[in-house]
Simulated assay, not measured.
Amino acid sequence: MANLAATYWLQGRWKETEGLDVKVLKARTIALGGEHPNTIKAMANLAVTYRNQGRSKEAEELEVRMRVLNENFSETIRALAKLAKIKKDLDENDRATELMRRSVTVTSIVLGDNHPNFTSPREQATT
């Protein structure tokens, strides 16, 4: 559905694009959850479609939701890294390692390993 929506988008077929974008967003929300990166990507696609239709208010509402979700992810990543550092300082090395692995996993899922805003777990723990 997402690929067909992209094809319609390239053709300027906004109503068909919108219909599929809405379905993709609903399906991803149900299957992956509202905070999953692929669900957020579906929100972004729908927001662009709304903007192309001159529906700025609806696009802005989705963009605000996306910003909040992305900020929550960033805060979660930082919190895991900081907690790992605390556990390391307390010589709870097994727990520190577990938390750092979770931080790296979440970072990889949310930002991707090659994202320009990616910071290493060590940098996260010190910020």
Rank of each mutant, 00 (worst) to 15 (best):
E98T: 08
N114F: 14
T119C: 06
Y8R: 03
M1Y: 08
M43K: 12
Q53C: 01
V24F: 04
A5Y: 07
L111M: 13
S103D: 02
V106Y: 03
L69P: 01
T76V: 01
Q53S: 07
L25I: 00
T127V: 05
M43Y: 04
N45A: 03
V110H: 15
S74P: 00
S103Q: 02
D94E: 13
M1T: 07
K85T: 05
E18A: 04
E16N: 11
V24E: 08
A27R: 12
T39I: 05
D113R: 10
E61I: 09
D113Y: 04
E18Y: 06
R65H: 10
R101S: 12
K41S: 09
A84W: 09
E60A: 08
A59K: 12
R51I: 00
L69Q: 10
T97A: 02
Y50P: 00
A47Q: 12
R67E: 11
G34E: 07
L46W: 11
N117F: 15
A84L: 00
L99Q: 06
K57H: 12
K82D: 00
N117E: 12
P121I: 05
K87C: 08
M66A: 14
L25F: 08
K26M: 14
A84C: 04
N117M: 14
R95K: 14
T126N: 06
Y8D: 07
K15A: 10
E35S: 13
Q53E: 08
E63L: 09
P37G: 08
P116H: 06
D89P: 00
E92P: 02
G12H: 07
W9M: 03
L4V: 09
K82E: 02
K82R: 12
L20N: 01
T126R: 04
L46T: 03
K15W: 07
A31M: 12
V110Q: 12
M1Q: 05
R101P: 01
R78V: 14
R122S: 10
L80S: 02
L90Q: 15
A42R: 07
G112P: 07
M66V: 15
V22M: 02
V110F: 15
A44G: 05
E71C: 09
Y8S: 06
R51Y: 05
N45Y: 13
P37W: 10
T7Q: 10
L83Y: 08
A125Y: 11
Y50R: 07
L20T: 05
D21L: 04
L46Y: 09
A96Y: 01
V68I: 15
Q11C: 01
H36K: 06
A81I: 03
K85W: 13
T49Q: 06
G19D: 13
E71H: 10
P37F: 13
A6C: 06
G112E: 11
T76H: 08
V106E: 03
A47T: 05
R51N: 05
R65C: 00
A96K: 00
F73L: 05
